[in-house]
Design a protein around this nucleic acid. Structure first.
Length: 884
RNA sequence: GGGAGCAUAGCUCAGUUGGUUUAGAGCAUCUGCCUUACAAGCAGAGGGUCGGGGGUUCGACUCCCUCUGCUCCCACCA
């Protein structure tokens, strides 16, 4: 059967993925084996696969496939996140496009649209993961808003509320006056914006009467002066020390406010006087709390001045600013204005300028949970890879703030709090229980009188339960409940692969929830991938259009090629600069494997051919090298150095297996191969495929199935990972010397234009390289005989070279250019002289010889001896040459 | 402003408690090859003194200080 010269991934990938699925090879159930578990960081249900997912999920698949082949019961749980804000935004804009405003429909109607939308588009990203080869246990697919997972979220809320850790309070939020909702900090885009810095005169008050002395306050928001509660100076600012204890009048409205002192003020910014507006600035809010100042809220949810403002009531905030500036000039309160550029927050969704606004939100106290979550890292129960992230993890845990868990949205788990007619509220898992609680306060309460809080919970309040709830959704909220069989078996999971950006949002909080409800950490290792950037180091984003579509890439280069391409250049925690040439390299590697198979599969073996010494030695060498490589790869994996493990394999396959081993044992044209070598080669191939399988699942399955007859349902993915047996490192090193000699000879041929067809003789120092290895030389560089150097005779010209301390000589009477030859030897001697010099310098330093460890001094003596020997030999070769 | 990190060949990165032949890899480059598995290939070669300066040490890419440049996280100046 003719095998095409190029590997075509398309059909292969489709075929084997459905084969794996139909034989349920990804599915895991608890059994007596050791479990190996990964829960996927659930992508947004509305998401589409991007390069970041590719990297992240490829790494997870490599880990899970390797574990599965190493005899573990491997379970990779997939799923999606409801992503309340992102999804709601998409649904809102989709409805808008259809002419439906969210404000015109009921909550129930909106949620129906949202669920419809989720059913339609929700599965896309998971389908895309299948193209990548992801070996997830799809039977276990979960969604953070599955009914039973949502119940767990509610129970968790009730649990923490009962513990006294959840409370309701006023806080400043990022208010989007256009979108009519609070948005999270992540949804605020800061943009450099040109504005003015106004210098305003605040007259000093004498018992409520305006004096003629004033101070100057700088502000960018003059329209908020009516909400001022104080003017603040730095306690150490001597310029203003006379103001201590005095009061000033707010311009225009002449309201008296105190002068206070706080370290927050920067003395050399503006005038050193700060107007404090606690209801409309986050920093002023903090100052207000510290100094117990009144909070005057003068801006309504539409961004207009309200009654509290007293003047310009009903004016839109920017319109009000213009008008008030005019009036300030008019009344002599404006000292001056200057151009000023600052970072202003805009809403990601509506592009409206964010208004800091006080509002009532739900919070969770974090200090205690955070300090316990920190212990898991401090005590090394959870390892971060790379561990440079420890510091930032610690920093965050030690400076944690209470968590604002309410969102003014509809898509998500609704806060289980019900308000009574008197304004008080009860918290309960459902309305029935809420009613029971409410009746305790007022027996006259009926169910219809209870009104549930309209807000939903922050998405992270459900995803922090993920490693628990995918196995046992009923566990969250109940620390004392016995875990079900799955949770008991799979938890704690092993490795979590995620991005450093969400180390705090998600990873740390999972640790807290795991500790709270399972009394244990949710995972042992956290592998933090970098960000995928483009060649120029820019983050890949839709708006820049610099992100290739992973699905297209897989079509062109094959899933295996893309996986290899991404992995080769991505060490943990480092960003990866993605360039299509990397993926090309991955594809080329697939093709190399394919062609190696083409070669080997075409061989015919025969009992009549006996194994020659050369083939036997090659088999022995590669067998040792394989074992040695296993240990190297094992070591890389133990340190999560996945790209190094892959590179080791890449070179093992391409260089050692293809370029050396196969070339050495390759039978001549039309010849048959001996049966032993053939068999060994197939075994090597089989082992290499198994080693490569976690990285390149598709091509390795295809070739493994072709290599010999397999039973239906058998698969490389459930075969076992080769293990290291003892190996002879010194033999591997001798083989390396032999390879080096071959490279030297090739170089000699090329630089003198000697065709490979021309047979040469070789003389070599006795007993330096085992003669069995010398047989490689005769084959690969067409050497007719290898003889001891003592037999070379003294009157033939040729080329000399050395490998280690072994001397080689090739007679080249017809090709020799004496001068050129001497030049080469001279250059080498010069290099060695320099080297010897540096060694001698060390050795002649008595303090080195005295204080350095014995082995180190010993090595230096060896270096010295070797260099001297080499120089002597080369000098002799030079003389011999000159004699001719 | 607070915190963390990085700086090694053209590019992307290794270099594991300072000492194993005067720094390694992959890619890219250059040269020669359509050699009967592969031109998505084969063979060979060139290329860095480890950001600058200072220090510790018998010895520094590796430890300390400093300067320069860059990146990320957090908080953001009225």
């Amino acid at each position: 059967m003719e095998i095409p010269a190029k590997y075509d991934p398309a059909g292969t990938e489709e075929k084997w993925y459905s084969y794996w699925l139909s034989h349920k090879l990804f599915h895991s159930e608890p059994d007596e084996r050791e479990p190996y578990t990964i829960v996927i960081p659930p992508p947004n249900v509305t998401g589409v696969l991007h390069m970041g997912h590719m990297l992240n999920n490829t790494i997870q698949d490599v880990l899970i496939r390797r574990a599965r082949m190493s005899g573990k019961n491997a379970c990779w749980v997939p799923g999606t996140d409801h992503a309340s804000i992102a999804t709601e935004a998409k649904v809102v804009s989709k409805l808008k496009a259809e002419g439906i405003e969210k404000s015109e429909i009921t909550r129930e109607e909106f949620l129906k649209h949202a669920w419809d939308w989720k059913e339609k588009h929700g599965g896309i990203i998971l389908e895309q993961l299948k193209k990548l080869g992801a070996s997830c246990d799809w039977d276990r697919t979960k969604f953070t808003m599955d009914p039973e997972l949502s119940d767990g979220v509610i129970n968790t809320f009730v649990h923490y509320y009962k513990k006294g850790l959840i409370y309701r309070g006023v806080r400043m939020v990022n208010w989007d006056p256009e979108g009519q909702t609070a948005v999270s900090d992540e949804e605020v885009i800061r943009k450099e914006t040109k504005s003015k810095l106004y210098h305003l005169r605040y007259y000093i008050s004498d018992n409520g009467k305006k004096t003629d002395r004033y101070i100057v306050v700088a502000t960018t928001r003059p329209e908020t002066i009516m909400a001022d509660s104080a003017v603040c100076i730095h306690p150490d600012d001597e310029r203003y020390s006379y103001l201590k204890g005095k009061k000033v009048l707010i311009p225009l409205i002449e309201k008296e406010i105190p002068i206070i002192q706080d370290n927050y003020v920067t003395m050399d910014f503006g005038t050193g006087c700060l107007k404090v507006t606690p209801a409309h600035d986050i920093n002023d809010y903090e100052i207000g709390l510290r100094h117990n100042l009144p909070f005057t809220d003068i801006i309504d949810k539409w961004g207009r001045l309200n009654e509290e403002a007293k003047i310009f009531v009903g004016e839109e905030r920017f319109e009000a600013r213009k008008k008030i500036v005019g009036m300030l000039y008019e009344k002599g309160h404006m000292e001056r204005e200057e151009d000023y550029t600052s970072q202003i927050g805009y809403s990601e969704r509506t592009n409206a300028v964010i208004e800091p606004k006080l509002s009532l939100q739900w919070f969770m106290k974090m200090d205690d949970a955070a300090s316990r979550a920190l212990e898991y890292i401090d005590e090394d129960k959870i390892k971060l890879i790379p561990d440079k992230f420890r510091n930032s993890y610690r920093h965050w845990m030690e400076n944690v703030k209470d968590w604002c868990i309410s969102r003014q949205l509809w898509w998500g788990q609704r806060i289980p709090a019900w308000y009574l007619p008197d304004g008080s509220y009860v918290v309960a898992a459902d309305i029935k229980e809420a009613l029971v609680e409410a009746k305790k306060r007022d027996s006259g309460i009926e169910e219809h009188m209870l009104i549930q809080d309209p807000d939903v919970l922050d998405t992270w309040f459900s995803s922090w339960l993920w490693p628990i709830s995918v196995f046992d959704p009923e566990k969250p909220g109940f620390p004392d409940k016995k875990p079900n069989r799955d949770l008991e078996y799979y938890y704690p999971t092993n490795d979590l692969v995620t991005a450093p950006e969400i180390l705090f949002f998600w990873v740390a909080r999972m640790v807290m929830a795991g500790d709270e409800f399972c009394g244990n950490m949710p995972f042992r290792n956290v592998y933090l991938t970098g960000i995928v950037r483009d060649k120029l180091g820019r983050k890949m984003s839709k708006s820049l259009g610099n992100s290739p579509d992973p699905i297209d890439l897989m079509k062109i280069y094959g899933a295996d090629g893309v996986r290899v391409g991404m992995l080769l250049c991505s060490s943990a925690g480092n960003d990866i600069l993605f360039d299509e040439s990397q993926v090309e390299q991955g594809r080329n590697f697939s093709n190399k494997i394919w062609n190696a198979y083409r070669l080997v599969s075409g061989w015919e073996s025969s009992d009549n051919v006996s194994q020659n010494e050369r083939s036997a030695t090659a088999v022995k060498w590669f067998d040792n090298l394989l074992s040695y490589s296993f240990t190297i790869i094992e070591d890389h994996f133990s340190k999560f150095r996945i790209s190094d493990a892959l590179m080791t394999l890449y070179k093992l396959f391409w260089d050692d297996f293809c370029s050396w081993y196969l070339e050495i044992i390759k039978p001549g044209r039309g010849e048959k191969i001996d049966i032993h070598t053939h068999q060994s080669t197939n075994e090597f191939f089989d082992k290499l495929l198994r080693l490569l399988h976690p990285f390149m699942p598709f091509i390795t399955e295809e070739l493994w199935q072709n290599l010999e007859k397999r039973d239906e349902g058998d698969s490389i993915m459930i075969s076992c990972m080769p293990k290291a047996v003892e190996y002879d490192l010194s033999f591997i090193k001798k083989a390396e010397e032999c390879k080096e000699a071959i490279v030297n000879i090739r170089n000699i041929r090329q630089s003198r234009n000697i065709s490979l067809k021309e047979t040469l003789k070789l003389f070599v120092t006795d007993n330096s390289i085992p003669s069995e290895l010398l047989s490689f030389i005769t084959k690969l560089v067409n050497i007719e005989s290898v003889k001891p150097i003592s037999e070379r005779g003294s009157n033939n010209a040729g080329a000399s070279f050395m490998v280690g301390t072994t001397e080689f000589f090739i007679p080249l009477d017809n090709y020799i250019d004496k001068e050129q030859e001497v030049e080469k030897i001279d250059a080498e001697i010069k290099r060695l002289d320099g080297f010897l010099n540096s060694v001698n310098k060390k050795l002649s330093n008595p303090r080195f010889v005295e204080s350095a460890p014995k082995e180190v001094v010993e090595t230096e003596y060896n270096k010295q001896r070797d260099a001297i020997t080499k120089i002597e030999k080369l000098t002799r070769a030079r003389e011999d040459l000159l004699k001719l």
